[in-house]
C-alpha cells in the first residue's frame, strides 16, 4: 500500500492555520482523492461523495484553528467519519419518510442506492460487508491509521477493531475468489 505520509504535512497544516490561501489548495490536492475514495466506497454514490467531500473541507477550514497537533489523518478521518454518520442518519430519516409515503402509494420499491458504478467489482463485494466493518476497513486503508488510532476513534477495545478488520478483509478475499490457502 502506498504510504500517505508526507513530511511536509506538518508545515502545510501550520500554513493553513496561519490562514494562507494557497496552503488550503495544497491540502485539498493532498487529501481530496483519499477522502473521496473513502466516501465513495462507503456510499457507492458519486454525487453524495462529492457533497460529503465538499462538506468535509468546509469543516476543515472552520475547525483548522482547533487542531492541536498529533496525527492529522486521525483528526481528518474522525471528521470524515462523523460526516458519514450524519449522512447515514439523514438517509435513515429520509428512508423512514419514503417508507411512509411508499405505504401510501401502495408499496413503491425503495431505491437503496443510486448512481452505483456496477462495473467496479470490488464495490459490489464491499457492499456485502456490514457497514460497521466496511467503515473500519476503509478508515484503515484511506486514513492510513494504526489499530490503536482506530480503536480510539471508535471507542472500542483494540482487539475488537483488529477482529473486525481481519474478518472483513478475509471475507472480502473470499468473495472475490481469493482463498489465500
Amino acid at each position: 500500500m502506498e504510504s500517505f505520509e508526507n513530511p511536509d504535512t506538518k508545515e502545510l497544516i501550520s500554513r493553513c492555520q496561519a490562514g494562507e490561501n494557497r496552503a488550503f489548495d495544497e491540502l485539498v490536492d493532498l487529501y481530496a482523492s483519499r477522502c473521496y475514495g473513502y466516501f465513495y466506497r462507503l456510499t457507492r454514490n458519486t454525487d453524495v461523495s462529492h457533497d460529503l467531500l465538499s462538506e468535509l473541507f468546509v469543516k476543515i477550514v472552520e475547525k483548522m484553528g482547533s487542531f492541536k497537533g498529533g496525527s492529522f489523518e486521525k483528526w481528518l478521518f474522525t471528521i470524515a467519519g462523523n460526516l458519514f454518520h450524519d449522512y447515514l442518519r439523514g438517509r435513515y430519516r429520509q428512508k423512514k419518510m419514503l417508507e411512509t409515503k411508499a405505504r401510501e402509494l401502495q408499496d413503491e420499491p425503495l431505491p437503496r442506492r443510486t448512481n452505483t458504478d456496477l462495473s467496479d467489482q470490488l464495490q459490489m463485494f464491499l457492499a456485502k460487508l456490514d457497514e460497521d466493518t466496511l467503515e473500519v476497513i476503509l478508515m484503515r486503508f484511506y486514513g492510513d491509521m494504526s489499530f490503536k488510532e482506530l480503536s480510539e476513534i471508535r471507542n472500542e477495545p483494540i482487539g475488537t477493531t483488529l477482529s473486525k478488520v481481519h474478518r472483513g478483509l478475509k471475507k472480502l478475499r473470499e468473495l472475490m475468489g481469493e482463498s489465500g490457502d
Binding site: S49, F57, V58
Partner: peptide, 30 residues
C-alpha cells in the same frame, strides 16, 4: 490475510473525484 485484503483495495482504486468539483471546493474554501 489483512495485507492481501488491503492489496485488493489497492488494486481496485476508487474513481477519482471530478476536477470541476475539486475546483469548486477550492473556490468555496477561498
Amino acid at each position: 490475510d489483512m495485507d492481501r485484503g488491503l492489496d485488493l483495495l489497492q488494486s481496485h482504486p476508487a474513481p477519482a473525484p471530478d476536477p470541476e468539483r475539486i475546483a469548486a471546493i477550492k473556490r468555496d474554501i477561498q
